[in-house]
Simulated scan of single mutants.
Amino acid sequence: MESTVNITENGNGLVIPQNYKKLHRLNEDHLYHLALDTQKDDLEKMFGDVRFVCFGGQPSRMEKFSAFVAEELKINDHEKDGDRPKNYASGTDRYSIHKVGPVLSVSHGIGIPSLSVVFNEIIKLIYYAKCKDVEFFRIGTCGGVGLEPGSVVVTDKAVDGEMNPYYKLTVLGKPVKRLAKVDQSLVESLLRCQEPDDEFQTVKGTTLCADDFYEGQARLDGAFCEYEEEDKMKFLQDLKEKGIRNIEMESLGFLAMCHFAGVKGAVACVTLLDRLKEDTLSCDVSMLKKWQERPQILVLRHIKKKLNKH
């Protein structure tokens, strides 16, 4: 069954969850994995000015990103715990949430299942907070296919391991497909944010969203592997010929959920290696950390333009 998009909006830029009628029956909605609550927390006061939600895998990376946001947007009055940005989800060990002005920085873990949990609760959070005209971004890392390591790929199409542009899940024992439609206006905006003196190239292309890090991405170094080097290389070459530029594990679900929720969303990831040449990382940690900042730089340029702070 293919889900149809039936976005509920009030014309003022607010996103209303499709499940809002059932949510209204609740006396209290406990956003369990965010350690937030509709009764004990004034979500509108806390988060009502949020316009950009940036997702990334690791809590530590997203904490550093929030500090980067504060520096770039010149915001010094955001809440802190000591010298560190406040983690609003500190009451749970699942995810992290940091807020700097209109930017929310959220960790999502690894893979679509982990992403889906926090995505659901973030959608409800921006609904309860009455946020307007919100844009979602996934900023992360990936494996490149025929690209120089350190390149940034802006996803203009996401597919699964069978080349289908659908996020598939099982609901009430039945398969459901949701189209991973990319907001092309955001894609083009991010591409326009590249600058001539950048130390990295920014490209757009199709992203393969795998269900697994090892076999699902044709690696030879997992605990299980029923294919040989030549099988792997044929598969990766086929991907390149089909226009696949990178491989990661969240884009398909992220873009499908953005589209289904009626939220503008985009994905920008930096390639840490070229999968046509290697399965594992060979560069040093300091270089990796520098590369991880590249999609953040791109997204922040977009945010600054939207806020007229460029």
Score class of each variant (00 low, 15 high):
Val100Lys: 01
Val15His: 08
Val263Ile: 15
Ala266Leu: 09
Pro165Asn: 06
Lys304Ser: 08
Ile122Met: 04
Leu147Gly: 04
Gly82Ile: 01
Leu36Asn: 04
Tyr227Ile: 01
Thr271Glu: 01
Pro59Ala: 05
Tyr128Gln: 03
Ala218Asp: 04
Val176Ala: 06
Gln184Val: 13
Tyr95Asn: 01
Gly216Arg: 01
Ser105Glu: 04
Leu191Cys: 08
Val182Tyr: 00
Ile122Thr: 00
Asp42Ala: 07
Ala180Ile: 09
Pro102Leu: 13
Phe200Gly: 04
Leu104Asn: 05
Asp77Met: 13
Gly13Cys: 07
Thr271Arg: 02
Cys131Gln: 06
Asn87Asp: 15
Glu278Gly: 09
Phe68Ile: 02
Tyr20Ala: 05
Lys309Ser: 09
Lys45Phe: 11
Ser185Lys: 15
Asp197Thr: 12
Gln194Met: 10
Ser66Gln: 12
Glu135Met: 09
Phe47Cys: 14
Cys269Lys: 00
Arg94Asp: 15
Lys99Pro: 07
Ser66Trp: 01
Asp279Pro: 02
Arg138Met: 11
Lys181Met: 10
Phe119Lys: 08
Asp29Ser: 08
Phe200Ala: 04
Met62Ile: 14
Cys283Trp: 10
Pro85Leu: 14
Phe137Thr: 04
Ser151Asn: 04
Lys305Ala: 15
His310Lys: 14
Gly57Ala: 13
Glu293Thr: 12
Gly173Gln: 06
Gly161Thr: 13
Phe224Glu: 03
Glu248Ser: 11
Lys181Phe: 13
Gly143Tyr: 03
Leu26Cys: 11
Gly48His: 07
Asp274Ala: 09
Asp77Cys: 01
Tyr128Arg: 00
Met62Gly: 14
Pro113Phe: 03
Gly144Ser: 14
Ser60Gln: 13
Val145Tyr: 00
Met257Ser: 15
Phe68His: 11
Thr206Asp: 00
Lys174Phe: 05
Glu162Ala: 14
Ala261Asp: 11
Asn10Arg: 07
Met163Tyr: 01
Asp83Ala: 12
Val267Asn: 02
Ile16Trp: 06
Leu186Trp: 03
Val263Met: 14
Ala218Arg: 11
Glu44Gln: 12
Gly253Ile: 00
Cys142Gly: 00
Ile126Tyr: 12
Val50His: 09
Thr206Gln: 07
Ser114Tyr: 04
Ala67Arg: 15
Ile122Trp: 12
Asn246Ile: 07
Asp183Ser: 10
Pro59Asp: 12
Ala223Met: 12
Gly56Cys: 01
Tyr227Gln: 06
Glu63Gly: 07
Tyr214Ile: 01
Thr38Pro: 05
Tyr32Arg: 13
Ser60His: 10
Leu272Gln: 02
Ile297Asn: 06
Asp274Met: 02
Gly146Ser: 05
Lys181Gln: 15
Asp274Val: 00
Glu215Gln: 11
Phe68Ala: 02
Val100Tyr: 04
Leu36Asp: 05
Asp133Asn: 15
Phe224Arg: 06
Leu236Lys: 11
Glu226Pro: 10
Lys289Gln: 15
Gln58Glu: 12
Glu148Cys: 08
Pro196Arg: 11
Gly205Pro: 06
Arg25Thr: 11
Val299Phe: 12
Arg25Met: 14
Ser107Ala: 13
Met249Gln: 09
His302Gln: 09
Glu72Lys: 13
Leu236Gly: 08
Asp160Leu: 03
Arg275Phe: 06
Arg178Asp: 10
Val106Cys: 14
Ala89Tyr: 08
Ala266Ser: 15
Glu162Leu: 14
Gly57Arg: 05
Lys290Pro: 01
Val134Trp: 06
His108Pro: 03
Phe224Met: 05
His302Ala: 09
Tyr227Asp: 02
Lys306Leu: 09
Leu252Asn: 04
Arg51Cys: 08
Glu188Lys: 14
